[in-house]
Simulated scan of single mutants.
Amino acid sequence: MGHFKKIYSDYKHQVYFFVRKYISGQEDIEDVVQEIFVHLWKHHTQLQKSEHPEAVIFRTAKQEIANFYRKNKMIFSSDPDIISGLEERDEESDTIWKEENLSKIERLLSELPTQNKEFLLRNKLENVSYLKIAEENNMSKTAVEKRINKALAYIRSNLSLF
């Protein structure tokens, strides 16, 4: 349950904006997003085992968008020019979104206490375990875990304010 909550909180906005690229009505968008997360919930054990949950999430989103068009007997264009145009626009908007968020995250990281930032970066970027960081800094594993979680919570909460 906790893993699914994390997936939901981490991806709900990305999935919403992804769906909004293909579907226009607000209610329809919300319905499709809900269907995506219902599908992910039904298969959350497989999602938890996946090394690339983002790929699974967006593959599911594409399937649910196609289901939406099928249910409403709409034709989702198979014209190669339109599809490649959509893919290019997706890549451009994804790149812009990632660059904007990366700069926001870098700014938020600079606001963290030095040790919390160091622990977070070592754990997430260098894959150093809590235990190893704790041993190197003569601290308990729980203290390191709390510092890292506090740093992550700060970034998550402030990232949405931009």
Rank of each mutant, 00 (worst) to 15 (best):
E88C: 01
K132T: 09
H43A: 06
N138G: 04
A55M: 14
S9Y: 06
E30R: 08
S103M: 13
Y8H: 11
T60R: 05
K150G: 01
S129E: 03
Q115W: 02
P80R: 06
E35W: 06
L159V: 10
I75D: 08
K141N: 12
L86Q: 13
L161I: 15
E99L: 09
E30W: 02
R89M: 14
K141D: 07
I65T: 04
N149L: 06
Y69E: 06
K6H: 08
I155N: 08
K98I: 14
K5P: 00
V15F: 05
D10M: 10
E27R: 09
E92G: 00
F76T: 01
L125P: 00
K98N: 05
P53G: 08
L40Q: 02
S129M: 02
F18W: 09
V38E: 06
E136A: 13
H3C: 06
L47D: 07
N158P: 06
F37A: 03
Y11I: 07
E35C: 14
K104H: 13
M74T: 00
S140D: 06
R89T: 10
S140W: 10
R59G: 05
S24F: 03
H52P: 02
E88N: 10
W97S: 08
L112G: 12
Y130R: 03
T142S: 14
P113A: 02
L152S: 12
I36S: 01
K124L: 12
A66S: 05
Y16S: 00
A55R: 15
I7S: 13
K141S: 09
A151M: 08
N158K: 12
Y11S: 09
Y130H: 09
T114H: 14
E92F: 12
K98C: 00
N127H: 13
V38S: 05
Y69M: 07
G85K: 08
I82M: 07
D79W: 05
I133K: 04
T114I: 13
S78D: 15
H43D: 10
L109V: 11
N67P: 01
V19R: 06
Y16H: 11
I36F: 01
T60I: 03
V19G: 02
K150Q: 09
K132H: 01
E106L: 15
E111M: 14
V128F: 02
Y11C: 10
M1S: 10
D79H: 09
S140R: 05
R147M: 15
F119K: 00
Q115N: 04
Y8A: 05
E88H: 06
L40Y: 03
S84H: 12
Y154I: 01
P113D: 07
S77E: 11
H39W: 01
R107A: 08
L47I: 07
G25V: 04
N137K: 09
S93C: 03
I148V: 14
Q46G: 07
E64P: 00
N138Y: 05
